[in-house]
C-alpha cells in the first residue's frame, strides 16, 4: 500500500478528477491553437468547415498559406539564422564556464558563480533595454569621438543575437557543468600517465564524454532563442524574427488561421527538437 496516496475511494476519485482537469487546462489552448490551422474557413473559430492544408500551402488570396507568405518566411529565416548563431556561441562560452567553475579554483569563486546565474533572474525586458541602452551609449560615444558610426550597435540582428546570448549562456553553462561534474577525473589522469598531451586528452576523452550535453545544450539554446520574445522585442530592427512577425500580425490584422498554422508548425518543430534532446540525454543516462 502506498502511504502517500489518499486512502478513501472518494478522495482518490476527486484527486484523479483534479489531475484530469489540470491536464485539460494544459492542453486546451495548445489544441485550440493547432486545430484551426486545418479548418477551411477564413476565421480561426468554430464552426468546422472541413479539413484543408491551404493555411500551410495555399497560394491564392484570401488563403495564402504560411509557406507562401513572404514576411512569415523571412521571419522564419531570421529566426533560424539567429538561433543557430546564438546556440553555437552560448555552447562555446558555456563549455568554458563549465570548465572554469568545475575544474578551477580562484578567488571570489562563489561571488562569480552567483553572477553567472544572475541573468536567469533578470526579467527579459530589462535585459533587452539595458543592452539597448549600453550599445547606444557606446555607439554614441564612438560617433562623437571619432565620427565613425557603428551601425551594428543600433537595433538589429547583432543586438538581438547579443541579447539572447546574454541569458542563454547561463542555461548552457548549467547544463554542461552538470554533465562535467559527473565525469571521473581518473580517466583523464590515466590518459595523461599513458603519455597523452593535455590537448589530446581533451579531444579524445573529455569532449566526447561531454558531447551529449553539448548537443542538448545546443538544441535547448536554439529552441529558447527561436521562441524568445521579451528580450528580442526591445532589440529588434528591420529584420524581425518569426515571433515578432507573428505578434505584429496578431496586433495589426487580428488572428487569422495562418497564425494557427505558424503555431502548429512551431509546436511540432519544438516538440521534435525537445524529443531529440531528451533522447540524447537518455543515451547519456545509459553509458
Amino acid at each position: 500500500m502506498n502511504v502517500a496516496a489518499p486512502q478513501s475511494r472518494f478522495l482518490r476519485a476527486t484527486y484523479s478528477g483534479y489531475l484530469v482537469l489540470f491536464f485539460i487546462y494544459l492542453a486546451a489552448p495548445l489544441v485550440a491553437a493547432g486545430v484551426f490551422a486545418f479548418n477551411d474557413s477564413t476565421f480561426s473559430a468554430l464552426p468546422w468547415k472541413g479539413f484543408t492544408l491551404d493555411w500551410f500551402f495555399g497560394t491564392t488570396d484570401p488563403k495564402v498559406g504560411m509557406f507562401h507568405d513572404r514576411r512569415l518566411l523571412r521571419g522564419m529565416g531570421n529566426s533560424l539564422y539567429i538561433g543557430v548563431i546564438v546556440a553555437a556561441l552560448s555552447v562555446v562560452v558555456g563549455t568554458c564556464n563549465a570548465f572554469l567553475f568545475e575544474r578551477k579554483e580562484f578567488p571570489f569563486k562563489s561571488v562569480l558563480y552567483i553572477l553567472m546565474v544572475l541573468p536567469l533572474v533578470i526579467p527579459g525586458v530589462i535585459l533587452g533595454i539595458s543592452i539597448l541602452v549600453f550599445a547606444s551609449m557606446v555607439a554614441n560615444g564612438v560617433e562623437n569621438g571619432t565620427g565613425i558610426d557603428l551601425g551594428f550597435l543600433r537595433p538589429g540582428l547583432f543586438l538581438v543575437i547579443i541579447g539572447q546570448f546574454s541569458f542563454l549562456t547561463t542555461i548552457t553553462s548549467l547544463v554542461i557543468a552538470a554533465r562535467l561534474r559527473k565525469f571521473d577525473v581518473a580517466l583523464e589522469e590515466a590518459a595523461l600517465n599513458l603519455g597523452a598531451t593535455r590537448v589530446r586528452v581533451l579531444a579524445t576523452i573529455t569532449l566526447p564524454y561531454l558531447a551529449p550535453a553539448l548537443f542538448s545544450a545546443f538544441i535547448v539554446g536554439f529552441l529558447i532563442s527561436f521562441e524568445n520574445f521579451n528580450t528580442t522585442l526591445m532589440l529588434v530592427g528591420s529584420d524581425a524574427p518569426l515571433t515578432i512577425t507573428m505578434y505584429d500580425r496578431m496586433v495589426k490584422v487580428g488572428s487569422t488561421p495562418v497564425l494557427n498554422a505558424v503555431s502548429f508548425f512551431l509546436m511540432v518543430g519544438s516538440g521534435l527538437l525537445a524529443l531529440i534532446s531528451v533522447l540524447a540525454q537518455r543515451q547519456r543516462a545509459d553509458d
Binding site: P29, A33, F229, S263, L266
Partner: peptide, 29 residues
C-alpha cells in the same frame, strides 16, 4: 506531459487562449 507546454512559445500559448476565449471564440460559441 507537464513539460510539453514548456517548449511552446509564450506567443503560441497566448494565441491559443485568444482563440478559446474571444467573443467569436470556441468557448463563447
Amino acid at each position: 506531459l507537464c513539460l510539453i507546454p514548456l517548449w511552446v512559445s509564450d506567443l503560441v500559448r497566448a494565441f491559443g487562449w485568444i482563440v478559446l476565449l474571444r467573443e467569436t471564440g470556441v468557448i463563447s460559441g
